[in-house]
Design a protein around this nucleic acid. Structure first.
Lengths: 222, 222
DNA sequence: GCAAAAAGTGTACATATGTTCACTGAAGTG
DNA sequence: CACTTCAGTGAACATATGTACACTTTTTGC
């Protein structure tokens, strides 16, 4: 399973197998309850079935491998968001469908989402920073999308970012719950229901936002 | 600093100093960028200045120490929530004040909040589970509080839990941002502003919830 | 098919780790 | 004051770790 298949080079003169096996091995070991900085280089090579020193043929150190995992995991995540936004709408039925797609997708790529979730506030600064960076990008991208829906109401850029961050936060929350519920095998139905409701409540709040007079914080101070 | 003061017994015949020093040492080491399961027993005792074997006089293993950290950290957290709820209101000005109190408190107890944030999805199952358990308790407690405000609208228990989880999620989000922003020293003002707006938007959504006809999910399916 | 480059091996070493055990010394109790 | 209790010591251990080096094997480009 974790044994490397016969290694070979891909058409573009890069080797793929062992390198990919190393990346997978880290995800696998983290899935067996370790955080990234508690995983040793030797355990990783052991999992793949190669000599420890062979590690350096592929990565200068573990941190570099970690950074690459951030990249590939966010690539996966972006594919999900693309799928969800394919039928972009804040309509309620669409939200429900989206949440369902979302949950399925996270389950199918559990180890990558687990990696990001665990290391987002983990013990390795470079990785944390990289995840945070990608995360902020995601929010900005969503904010641009949202601008279309709220164009009429003339939302400020700040408020759009605020809303986007709230929505991403809700989705993140669903991912976190999925990951926590995993081993305990709780039914997803309730989880989907709650996540869906939370998103709808946020949309509801957003609808009221512009004409609530609350968006201008300074007015609140007597 | 991390050196233990002269050890002595407290009035109830229990020793306090070294034990507490061990707990602090872990928080300190985690603050220097490590996750809990990447911190060795020897590093901890080294930080305190005692012999590694002396560790066992106080804790059977590192996990036990970790569990105790969960307990004391949540104790700190509960004190904060008590303070915030002292003037319980969903009024906008109150929300702003609360968020400010909140931010100050988190800054003052940074290392404990960092511990919970980092280990909530960290690599140690027992600790993760304990944090999750406390977290769920918190949500239930808030739900009970919220029931008072929405008594008129006859919210269902599920919806109250849903709202409470959304609000706790928002607060958690603020904590996370504070911790991430720390070293980069970004101004808190913007952070407070955003967090505050997000909470207000949620409250706005909640106001509309009952008479929106959306709370009944089944109606959405044609 | 051959030479070069790349991937993987085996060994070695200094250092770090968890845990044990017999011990020392100080504090607290009668 | 003698005695027990218990926090802390020091040495020892088997094992794990990152990395270096010289080496063999495999793959690739011509």
């Amino acid at each position: 399973m974790s044994r490397p298949q016969k290694r070979h080079r891909s058409h573009d003169n890069k080797l793929v197998d062992t390198r990919q096996a190393l990346l997978n091995a880290v995800l696998e070991l983290m899935d067996r309850d370790k955080s990234f900085d508690a995983i040793s280089l030797r355990k990783v090579t052991g999992e793949v079935g190669i000599n420890p020193s062979a590690f350096y043929r592929h990565f200068p150190d573990m941190d570099s491998l970690g950074l690459e995992l951030v990249g590939s995991s966010f690539k996966t995540l972006r594919q999900l968001l693309k799928a969800v936004r394919a039928t972009p709408s804040l309509d309620n039925i669409i939200v429900r469908r989206s949440v369902e797609t979302f949950v399925t997708y996270v389950r199918d790529n559990r180890r990558q989402f687990q990696f990001i979730t665990r290391e987002r506030f983990g013990g390795v600064a470079v990785i944390r920073d990289e995840i945070d960076h990608e995360h902020k990008l995601l929010i900005s991208e969503l904010a641009i999308d949202l601008a279309r829906y709220f164009a009429v109401d003339k939302w400020t850029n700040e408020d759009l970012q605020m809303l986007a961050s709230l929505m991403i936060g809700s989705m993140t929350h669903i991912v976190e719950q999925l990951l926590l519920a995993r081993r305990r095998g709780e039914g997803d139905a309730e989880l989907i229901e709650t996540g869906e409701k939370q998103l709808r409540l946020i949309v509801l709040g957003a609808m009221q936002w512009r004409n609530s007079g609350l968006q201008d914080t300074d007015k609140l101070i007597p």
